[in-house]
Design a protein around this nucleic acid. Structure first.
Lengths: 342, 342
DNA sequence: TTTAGCACTCTTTTGTCCCGAGTGCTAATC
DNA sequence: GATTAGCACTCGGGACAAAAGAGTGCTAAA
C-alpha cells in the first residue's frame, strides 16, 4: 500500500496541511515557500502531476493549484499524520469545559458535545450511554401538592429524568402505595424501551386499585421512559457549520439533515474500531459527501456504551481534531464509569 | 397621527402585504393587478411618491419598485393590520405541539418556543416563569448507591431540576438527616439566586455534622439552584433564520448575537405592554437592525411571570404572527397557572 | 534526475453595452 | 382639481469581450 516515495509523501502531507489551513488550492511555488524544500518548482510539479495521476490530488481546473482528493485525505489520515497526542491547551479547555457536569452522565455528554464542537468548529453528535438495553433502576414519586407530584426516574446508565405530573383527583397515600407496587413489580428492572402506555394499562388492569386515578402517573412514567430512549442523541454546535466557507449554502441542507434523528443515529453507530474516520463519500449519505465524520466510542465499566461523533467539512484539521476526540471519549468513559458505580 | 387619506392607507397596506409575500419591491403596475384597484398606474405612482416623501416607503434605487420603510411597517402594524384573530389552523398546530408538555412548566416553555419558531419560521426566545424571585420549594435526596444519590429541586414556579451526585465517603442515614436539616432551615423558602457555595458553607459550618461529607451535596444543590436562574432563557428555532433570504450572510452574525445570553435577555425583558413589536432600528442593538422582535408576556396566577419573544426579518408576516404569539402566551400562562396550583 | 524557460489554459476581474422595469414629469382629459 | 396617457430618463443586471494573473505541462538543457 505504501507505494509512495518519501518525497511524494512529504508533498502530499504538505498539500493537505496547507490546503486545510488556507482553503486555497496549493500550487508548486507556494508549496516550496511553505515547506522550504530545496528543489525547484518544476520538480514539485512533476511529483504533483504523478500524485494527481495516482488519484491523491485533484485540480479544480487546469490552471489552479492542487487540492487533496478524498483518497489523498485518506492516505494522509492513515499514514502521514504525525502528532498523535492531544495538544496541552486543548486538554485544558476540554477539562475545564466539562468540569461542572462531571457527576451526571447526561449533562456530561451534553457539555462534552458542546465543548468539542466549540473547540473544533464542527457539529458534534453524541449518544448518551447505555445502548438500547437501558434498564429502569429506580422511580420516585414525591407529592408536592394535593393534585400534583414530581416523578423521578433513574436508569442503569445513570440517566435521570424528572417531571411534574398533575392528577385529576386527589393524590392519596393509597394511590402512592398502589403506584409503587405497580412500579416495583412491572417497571423496575425492565428495559426503558419496553415501557409503553399499552403495557402499562394491561398491568394496571390486572392490579386492584384506582386505575383511573393513576392514569396520569402512568402516562408520565411512560413519557419519561420514552424520553430516555428518544433523547439518546445530543447534537451540539450545529451552527458552527456556517462558519466554514467550504459549505457555502450547502450548510443549510446539511443542517436539515442533522436535524433528522434517524439517519444521524445511523451515522454515529455501527462502527467497530474505537475511532473511525469517514471521509466525504465514504459516508453512506449523500448529504455528507462534502463532510468528514469522526466517530469514537467511549466505554463505561469496560463495555462499549456510547459514541461521540464530529461532523465537519472534508477539509478539516484532522491532525488536531482526532487526538481531541480520542482524549475526550476516554475521559468521558472514565467519568461516567466513576459516576454510576455504587 | 392618522393624516393619511383612505387611499394612501390602502396602498401602503397593499405594498406591505405584497412585499412581505414576495420579497420583491412592488411597482405601480404590479400593485394594481394585485389589488384590483380601479385607477391607473400613474395615480398610484403619484400616491406612492407622496408616501415615499412622507417616509412610509423607500426605493432601493431609482428604477425599482417601493418597499416599506420602518416607519411604513410601524404604521401598518399600528393602524392597518386587520384580522387580529388567530387562524384556526395555527391554533391547532400550537395546541397539538405543546400537548405533550402541558404538566411541566419548563418543558412547556421549551415546546412552546419550538412550536412557535416552527410555525413562524423565526427564532424564538422565551423565559421560564418566575422572574428573579424564584423560591426554592422542595428538595429531595434519594440515595441510589453507597456513594451516590439523586438530588431533586423544585421551585415555586414549577421548575424541576435534578441531577446525580457522587459523594467521597459513604452516604449514611445520619448524613441524609443532617442534609435535610440544613436544607429545611436554610434553603427552603429562599430565592434561588441567593443560594451560593459561600452562603452554604457558612451555614454548614454553623451546624453540627460532617461538613466534609456533605460538601458534594451542597455543591450540587448550589449548582441546581444556579441552573434555575441561569437557564431561564430558552432559544428555539434559531436555524430558521437561515431560511430567509433577507438576511443573506448576515444570518450568521445574527445567530452569534442570539447565542450571547446577556443582550438577549435584555431584548425580551423590560417591556410594559402585554405585547410589544419592535421594528428594525427601534431595537437597541445594532445586530437587530434588520430584524423585528415581537415580545409578549404571559402571566401565571395573575402576575406577569415570563415572556415569549420572536425574532425574525423586518419583512415578516405580522398579520399572522402577532395573533399567534398572543394566543400562545395566553395559553402558556393558563397552563402553567394550572400546573403549579396545589 | 533535476531544472529553467516558455507556451498554454482557465479563472477572475474589469469594462462596455444593452435591455427591461419602473419612475417622474408634462400635457391632455374628465 | 383629480386623473390619466405618454414619454424621456434612470438604474441594475446580464451578456460579452478583453486583460490580468496564477499555475500547469512540456521541452530541452544541465
Amino acid at each position: 500500500m505504501s507505494e509512495l516515495s518519501e518525497r511524494k509523501k512529504q508533498i502530499l502531507a504538505a498539500v493537505v496541511e496547507q490546503y486545510v489551513k488556507t482553503g486555497e488550492p496549493v500550487g508548486s511555488k507556494g508549496l516550496i515557500s511553505s515547506t522550504g524544500m530545496s528543489v525547484s518548482s518544476a520538480t514539485i510539479r512533476n511529483e504533483m502531476s504523478d500524485l494527481a495521476a495516482m488519484g491523491y490530488l485533484e485540480q479544480p481546473h487546469t490552471s489552479a493549484g492542487r487540492i487533496p482528493s478524498q483518497k489523498g485525505y485518506r492516505y494522509y489520515v492513515d499514514n502521514l499524520m504525525k502528532n498523535r497526542e492531544i495538544d496541552e491547551i486543548n486538554k485544558r479547555i476540554i477539562e475545564a469545559g466539562i468540569s461542572s457536569a462531571v457527576g451526571d452522565p447526561e449533562r456530561l455528554i451534553a457539555r462534552a458535545s458542546e465543548v468539542l464542537a466549540d473547540l473544533t468548529k464542527c457539529a458534534c453528535v453524541s449518544s448518551t450511554p447505555g445502548g438500547d438495553a437501558v434498564i429502569i433502576r429506580k422511580i420516585e414519586l414525591v407529592p408536592v401538592g394535593i393534585h400534583s407530584a414530581m416523578l423521578v426516574l433513574l436508569t442503569s446508565n445513570g440517566i435521570l429524568k424528572s417531571r411534574l405530573c398533575r392528577l385529576d383527583c386527589e393524590l392519596t397515600v393509597t394511590i402512592c402505595e398502589q403506584f409503587y407496587n405497580i412500579v416495583k413489580s412491572c417497571i423496575i428492572g425492565k428495559p426503558a424501551s419496553d415501557i409503553s402506555v399499552v403495557s402499562m394499562q394491561t398491568v394496571a388492569a390486572s392490579v386492584d386499585g384506582d386505575v383511573f386515578a393513576m392514569l396520569p402517573l402512568m402516562a408520565a412514567v411512560c413519557e419519561l421512559a420514552r424520553s430516555v430512549s428518544d433523547s439518546r442523541l445530543v447534537l451540539g454546535g450545529s451552527s458552527n457549520l456556517f462558519s466554514h466557507k467550504d459549505y457555502g449554502t450547502g450548510a443549510i441542507e446539511l443542517l436539515e439533515f442533522l436535524n433528522k434523528r434517524e439517519p444521524l443515529s445511523e451515522v454515529i453507530s455501527g462502527i467497530s474500531e474505537p475511532l473511525n474516520v469517514k471521509i466525504g463519500r465514504e459516508n453512506l449519505y449523500r448529504q455528507l459527501e462534502n463532510s468528514s465524520v469522526i466517530v469514537a466510542k467511549y466505554s463505561v465499566g469496560g463495555d462499549d456504551s456510547g459514541t461521540i461523533g464530529l461532523i465537519g467539512p472534508t477539509r478539516m484539521d484532522y491532525e488536531n481534531i482526532i487526538p481531541s476526540v480520542k482524549y475526550l471519549t476516554n475521559l468521558v468513559g472514565r467519568l461516567i464509569t466513576q459516576a454510576i458505580e455504587e
